[in-house]
């Protein structure tokens, strides 16, 4: 009898350390955040329940609509670029080449660099008047691009920086995916007379589907929360052109001291991430079972 009770408890015991930490430092703060979204909370004073007023206010706030649009644009462009560049490079690095480990290491370096510092470096690189990027363009006879000071270029600049920072992660994931596909399948396709592209398109790519899903989902989650590079490089400007939901949470909470409103924004952010993830699982889901 005692043996059976013990056996039931054992998995929970293994879960305990992780869940104590998660409950104390993630889940309870999360529930508090949910509650704050329903309050007026001027950060330094205690929160006061106001129902759904913060969410009503969101629907009327032009800043929120701009942030929402920018976040979606950012997510879709960076995730697409990360995944495509990551996949192409993974395929190239999967070819038996001298020095491919070196290439892999180099491509992964941005991933392990501190985000705040590299954002500062990119801000210097993008500088309109004496940035090295415009100096390079100057050599090619191209007029200086106002990277961070025009509404047209600021978001592309942040996307470029973010793709640089993260594509190495996707390479590793795709390389792993490629290496778990039996080589014999591909070879069989080639023997059957398929061109290399056809072999990739019809044999490798379908088998990579679960990996693509993993890469897309994880990239989406991290892109949805984009903050540091925006904060360091543009602060959300010029105008509202790079204001993202992550930046808006920060501005509302730490500049305007409206934690309740900031929490409401982050609840929306969470919902968007959830919806995206669900669509992605649906889109890939059925075909993943094999």
């Amino acid at each position: 009898m005692s043996y059976r009770i013990n056996r039931r408890i054992i998995p929970y015991l293994f879960l305990l350390p992780c869940f104590v930490a998660l409950i104390l430092f993630s889940f309870i703060p999360f529930l508090q955040g949910l509650y704050f979204a329903l309050t007026s909370y001027p950060l330094l004073k205690s929160p006061e329940f106001i129902g759904f007023k913060n969410f009503e206010r969101l629907t009327r706030d032009p800043l929120f609509l701009a942030s929402l649009r920018n976040t979606l644009v950012y997510m879709i462009t960076t995730v697409t670029l990360r995944v495509i560049i990551g996949l192409i490079l993974a395929v190239l690095l999967n070819i038996r080449l001298r020095g491919r480990i070196l290439f892999r290491t180099i491509f992964y370096l941005p991933v392990i660099a501190p985000l705040v510092t590299v954002s500062v470096v990119w801000r210097i690189i993008f500088d309109t008047y004496s940035g090295v990027l415009n100096a390079g363009l100057d050599l090619l006879g191209i007029a200086p691009v106002p990277w961070l000071t025009s509404t047209a270029w600021a978001m592309p600049a942040i996307v470029i920086m973010s793709v640089w920072k993260t594509f190495g992660w996707n390479i590793v994931v795709f390389l792993a995916g490629l290496q778990s596909i039996p080589g014999s399948l591909q070879e069989a396709a080639l023997i059957d007379g398929a061109s290399r592209w056809q072999a990739f398109r019809h044999v490798t790519l379908p088998l990579l589907r679960p990996t693509v899903l993993l890469a897309v989902v994880m990239s989406t989650i991290s892109a949805s929360q984009v903050f540091d590079q925006v904060y360091v490089m543009t602060g959300g400007g010029p105008g509202y052109s790079t204001m993202t939901l992550g930046q808006m949470v920060y501005t509302a909470g730490f500049q305007d001291y409206e934690m309740g409103y900031a929490s409401a924004v982050s609840v929306v952010l969470l919902l968007i991430t959830l919806i995206f993830t669900m669509i992605q699982f649906k889109g890939f889901g059925q075909e993943v079972e094999y």
Partner: peptide
Amino acid sequence: MLPPQVTLVPT
């Protein structure tokens, strides 16, 4: 999926 900015204060 939690945005970290908002759990900062409760944490």
